[in-house]
Structures are given as C-alpha cells and as structure tokens.
Amino acid sequence: MALDMTKYRAVFLEDATEHLADMSRALLDLEKDTEHADAIDVLFRMAHSIKGMAASLEYDSIAEVSHVLEDRMQEIRSAGGVDGTEGLTLVFKGMEGLEAMIEVVRQTGESPPPNPDLVNALATPIAPAECQKKKS
C-alpha cells in the first residue's frame, strides 16, 4: 500500500510547531540551570521526534539537522549539562535552524535546502574539557 503523504504534511506542521514550543521552554529552563535534566530530556526527545516525522516525509535537510541536534543533546546528557555560553548558543541555533526550515515547509510545501554549516557546528564533538567540567 502507499500512503497519501500530503495529508501528513499538516500533521507534521502542527506537531513540529508544538515540539518547537516545548523546546523553546526547555531552553529557557536550561539557561537558568545548565544541568536541568528534564529540559535536556525534552530537547532530546523533541529533536528525535521531528527527525522521525521529517524522514517519513523525505524532508531530508530537516531530518539531518534534527538528527545532529538529537546527538548533541545525547552528548550533553552524558556530560551532565551544557556549557552556559557557547554550548547553549549552539543548541539555540539548532532550534532556530529547525524553526526556519519548518517555516519553509509551511510556506512552500517543499523540503527546505540543506544547512551544512549548522549541521557541521552541531556535529562537532563537545570538547573533553567541557565534559569533564560538567561531570566534576
């Protein structure tokens, strides 16, 4: 059987918008407390969820950014927290990038162009010193 994916675009936009709102609230919590475990978990889960939906609709660029953001959040979880300046800014940029891409889908119905700079930035491993600092 083949699914009519056009009707899933509206569900994607609705779900993704809610996820971004959740991520935004979580980022505020993380700004106040850089080791906020629940906020880190929400950011991880929402990125994971957007990745799954985007991949289903073949919005590969969104799937790619959400995938590296999910991995980043996993690293931050393992490190026990995020660096309060650069690390947090990068997560914010990731969320902002997703927001912009999802807006392109809303406006055009098409897959947005890739954002290799953002993907590379998010895929850069967290410096061991930062992990150590967070674990100590």
Partner: peptide
C-alpha cells in the same frame, strides 16, 4: 507513540 503523526501513520 508520543508523536500524533506516527500514531496516525
């Protein structure tokens, strides 16, 4: 599934 999208699919 926590995503309505996936449940519907």
């Amino acid at each position: 599934d926590d995503a309505a999208f996936m449940r519907q699919m």
